[in-house]
Amino acid sequence: QATKSNLNGLKLSNDQPIQIESDALEIREQDKTALFSGNVKVVQGTTTLQSGNMTVHYRGEGTSVTNGNADIEKIDVTDKVFLSSGTQQATADKGTFNLDSQIFVLEGDRVVLSEGQNVFVGCKLTVQMNSGEAKLDSCGGRVQIQLDPKSQKK
């Protein structure tokens, strides 16, 4: 049983630059990873992602980062993830952005998706990045939905 909603702010717009801040960044050419650690904050337009760590997996032969044509494949965020985009916000334990399939997933014991006063709680939030369509799964348990009466009148 899942609820659907649109996190339209979540679309990964590819015409705005991305700023990433963190305490440290370690680029490992051998394993093709760039590990941002410590107060990681990623901002693109109105979308902000914050987490303890973020690992960017990239493709590219040889020394792709040092020759600047790194092709990002997947981004893993761990250690308390907070995502906010426009009016919608989500919190979870960890998340994965898969650039190829354009899907990003937030997981955790309590994945909380909120929009204004409406709060949805589940264990897995799957968002189609290009459409912004979000699906919150309860993985067996009940999805708790708390709708704000005011929002009903709209």
């Binding site: 700023q19 990433i20 801040e21 963190s22 305490d23 440290a24 960044l25 370690e26 680029i27 490992r28 050419e29 051998q30 941002f36 980062v65 040092t66």
Partner: peptide, 10 residues
């Protein structure tokens, strides 16, 4: 291995 530390801005 390239390691940046301290107020990393990318």
């Amino acid at each position: 291995i390239i390691t940046f530390e301290g107020a990393v801005r990318v």
